[in-house]
Design a protein around this nucleic acid. Structure first.
Length: 806
RNA sequence: GCCGGAGUGGAGAAAUUGGCAAACUCAAUGGAUUCAAAAUCCAUCGCUCGUAUGAGCUUGCGGGUUCGAGUCCCGCCUCCGGCACCA
């Protein structure tokens, strides 16, 4: 017997919508719970891997509601940006109608899943009501010196024809299209995230409810390292600065290396014997992409012909140019200490440069450069010191001599936010010949994105070709002026949208701080680990900025972060390009959202990748069919007093409530499903053995309450059919009764020397002496004791006794 | 290289604190039902020996701690993810 999932699911989706079950407002009388899944790019097509995510978020919304929380679970659309624009280019349909059509499809998907979102707060980043506040935020950052325009060597994707932030370059490739990234000198807008590097780094320690890997990835990305920056003189005049984390090894410096792009290079090679060779090298490395530079087997470089003076011992050492030194990190120049640095070792070996060890390696050391700690030698006043002491001693020495100082280096760069693309929020700046760069006044926001038919990327913003947009008047002097034509990175939108949900329709302000104070921080945030350093770092940064502006009540936006695993099929992550995507449509049609949701929960630990099994949903549907039959068939009940079998099934259901509650709290959703399956199996057996109607009803109702956040439609229908008038979603989550949950008898494990030799049903009340006595009375056990002496008895009543014999 | 995570049956997995390894589901096999099939129901299902009661082995590998280790400690191997000529 199967149930009619289609009509039941449509019925309850209507009810939840018309009764506004998931619409909430601030309510000081209830504890709040703010529950968000990262807002999706509206691709229009969800696959079962996405559904997993939304099943989790919906389960939490429904569970927390039943626990008495005022739960906000909003949904919106990350509708600006490259994916939407590229899709528009492919299909020839303008991004606006295209995106809006996709949004309508996605909403249909969410409805079919039965997801409980508060649609009254829906937002979309491409709508002027939203991006107006992007622009406002930009201007506030500009006022505070946190947004600036600068000429810089930037990442350029030749396919997407736009610049990219460092975070959007993955192993030298464009994050979106895997095209090798090039470099260009361009004048671009940046957000000064480096000003917040220390705060962003330090407060990672407070994010106790975040996955370790995400915290580690952010720490690595910020890449703070402590050391010294000091100046090295060139023999014949001039100086350059170097950064090192190992100033204690300065006496081992036998050469210096400058990056090929280093500004001093030109004057060093001019007129030198190796000038031609050096110029050729610089040109060759300039042409090579970063990947090619790294892929080279050994280190390459060229002698400049110039010498430097090692400031700690006045030794004259050669200066090389080599591309293993990067202009983008530190000072673009290094002191090379081959004895203590493997890269320098390789370079020195190749070019025949001296190697001097200054740190004593362990006796059994047979490696090349020794980078560990040890006693310093060959180092004059540092001799005999261990690393930490030597570092601080040499830094003081440098500070006394005024040639250097202790410094901190970051790997993190400022966030490049301008894009030479159409489908984004215009940067609200006007360039005036007379007044220079002028921010658009707040009352003139939003700077509307004009409707443009030719939005194909051309290496400069398509907006630059729209005269009506570009030409404007200066807000200061009313003279002719030109607008900025770059648009903002969509990661700007996503770094504050979760504030907007708290006050989604405010047209006076980005949001009301009072509303944010009620809802923030997010109690639960769920999304893919691919955003570990992109969105999640930017969102933390912008939240800190909003905090400093007095708008956010918190410095950290996401109290508890959860990154779900991916669904894998045919050995690969589901993706359109691999052709292994499983759409949910057939499941809705043939098995129902409830069965699909249940399998999504059942498929494996939420944090882990899981393998999609096509027979899984039919399996969970079978379970729901059995449940339906159990709840709707006419049963023969016994008219009798409560007895042992009633207490057993009641005990089991209370233990199940405890387990399911604990499991949901720990995000072990995959074990909640088997708990309910076991309960249903036992309930069926109880029924077959002759059930009391009251007991059966009590157990069944508790089961429906637990099923409600997982497979809500069937649970609601059965709940109603059992004569309950109030909506199941609004019931309280069940609380287990410790007394009922207690087991009366347990299986006592009897071990002899740690091996299980007998299992006995005993009362749960037995003491240590009693279980020992029971164990020693067991015939099976006696056989193992024959001829041996019991030396020790380990009793763990009532579950286990271990007899140690010998 | 550094950092993080993982390794358990044919598959997904389970085992909150060190205490019955493999719950639950899928697949497979056998059976019932059926004219037949689907659906449903029942049974078997880690490996070895044995007709069997049963015995031995088994959580990537090697050691250790412990009465007792999938779980803790030490040393390795493999896989996944992140960062990376970062000085």
């Amino acid at each position: 017997m199967t149930y009619d999932h289609k009509s039941i699911e449509a019925k309850w989706q209507d009810r939840w919508e018309t009764e506004k079950v998931f619409q909430v407002t601030e309510d000081a009388s209830k504890p709040k719970f703010y529950n968000v899944a990262m807002y999706p790019y509206p691709s229009g097509e969800l696959h079962v891997g996405h559904i997993r995510n939304y099943t989790y978020i919906d389960l939490i919304t429904r569970y927390k509601m039943m626990q008495g929380f005022n739960v906000l679970g909003p949904m919106g659309w990350d509708s600006f940006g490259l994916p939407a624009e590229n899709r528009a280019i492919e299909t020839g349909m303008h991004p606006q109608p295209s995106v809006e059509g996709q949004i309508a499809k996605m909403k249909m998907h969410f409805r079919k899943l039965g997801a409980g979102f508060d649609w009254s707060r829906e937002l979309a980043s491409h709508s002027p009501e939203f991006y107006r506040w992007d622009q406002w935020l930009f201007l506030e950052m500009y006022k505070r010196g946190l947004a600036y325009k600068a000429e810089a060597r930037v990442n350029w994707c030749p396919k997407d024809q736009t610049v990219l932030a460092n975070e959007q370059v993955v192993e030298g490739l464009c994050e979106r299209c895997d095209t090798p990234v090039e470099h260009k000198e361009l004048s671009q807008w940046f957000f000064k995230i480096t000003d917040y590097a220390d705060r962003l780094l330090d407060s990672i320690d407070t994010l106790d409810n975040w996955p370790d890997r995400v915290r580690t990835m952010q720490r690595n990305w910020i890449g703070r390292s402590e050391g010294a920056t000091f100046s090295i003189g060139v023999d014949g005049g001039g100086t350059f600065d170097v950064f090192t984390t190992r100033p204690d090894t300065s006496f081992g410096m036998t050469f210096c290396v400058l990056a090929p792009e280093h500004p001093l290079v030109e004057s060093l090679i001019g007129g030198s014997a190796t000038e031609a060779e050096a110029r050729e090298y610089i040109e060759a490395t300039g042409r090579a992409s970063e990947i090619e530079r790294m892929a080279e087997g050994g280190k390459t470089g060229v002698f400049t012909g110039a010498y430097a003076i090692n400031p700690v011992n006045e030794t004259r050492i050669p200066i090389y140019i080599a591309d293993y030194v990067l202009m983008g990190y530190g000072t673009g120049a290094i002191m090379a200490v081959p004895g203590q640095d493997q890269r320098d070792w390789e370079f020195a070996t190749k070019y025949g440069i001296d190697i001097i060890r200054t740190v004593q390696p362990p006796d059994d050391w047979d490696g090349e450069a020794y980078t560990g700690d040890g006693v310093t030698f060959n180092s004059d006043f540092l001799d005999g010191m261990m690393r930490d002491e030597a570092v601080s001693t040499v830094i003081s020495w440098m500070e006394d001599k005024r040639i250097g100082t202790g410094t901190v280096q970051l790997r993190l760069r400022d966030w490049l936010i301008s894009r030479q693309r159409y489908w984004g929020s215009p940067i609200p700046i006007v360039n005036c010949d007379h007044c220079g760069m002028v921010p658009v006044p707040e009352d003139q926001l939003p700077v509307l994105l004009p409707h443009v038919e030719d939005y194909a990327p051309k290496g400069r913003s398509p907006l630059a070709a729209v005269d009506e947009f570009v030409n404007t008047t200066c807000p200061e002097c009313d003279g002719p002026a030109r607008r900025e034509t770059d648009t903002m990175d969509t990661f700007v939108d996503s770094s504050w949208y979760f504030f907007r949900y708290t006050d989604a329709h405010n047209d006076e302000a980005i949001f009301d701080p009072e509303k944010a104070k009620y809802w923030m921080p997010l109690d639960q945030y769920i999304g893919g680990v691919e955003h570990a350093v992109l969105h999640l770092l930017y969102a933390r940064f912008i939240t800190m900025v909003l905090y400093d502006m007095g708008l956010s009540p918190v410095e950290e936006p996401f109290e508890r972060m959860f990154t779900q695993g991916m669904l894998v099929r045919d050995g690969a992550k589901m993706s359109k390009s691999k052709g292994n995507v499983v759409p949910p449509d057939d499941y809705y049609e043939n098995y129902g959202a409830d069965a699909l949701r249940l399998f999504e929960l059942f498929v494996g630990p939420p944090t882990d990748d899981a393998v999609w099994n096509d027979s899984g949903v039919p399996g969970t549907k079978r379970f729901l069919d059995r449940l339906w039959k159990l709840g709707t068939a006419a049963h023969e009940f016994q008219d009798r007093d409560e007895n042992g079998s009633d207490r057993e099934i009641l005990g089991l259901v209370h233990r199940t409530v405890k387990k399911v509650t604990d499991d949901i709290n720990r995000f072990h959703f995959n074990t909640t499903v088997p708990a309910l399956m076991t309960l249903a199996n036992e309930l069926q057996a109880y029924l077959a053995d002759g059930a009391r109607e009251e007991t059966f009803g009590e157990v069944f109702d508790l089961m429906l309450l637990m099923l409600s956040p997982m497979s809500p439609h069937i649970a609601h229908e059965l709940w109603e059919m059992r004569g309950h008038e109030d909506l199941l979603a609004l019931q309280s989550w069940p609380v287990w009764d410790e007394e009922l949950a207690r087991e009366e008898t347990v299986t006592l494990i009897v071990q002899v020397n740690g091996k299980v030799r007998d299992r006995l049903e005993v009362s749960a009340e037995l003491t240590a002496e009693e279980v020992e006595a029971v164990a020693l009375a067991s015939e099976k056990v006696l056989g193992w004791l024959e001829g041996k002496e019991v030396r020790k008895v380990i009793a763990r009543p009532p579950n286990l006794v271990n007899l140690v014999v010998g």
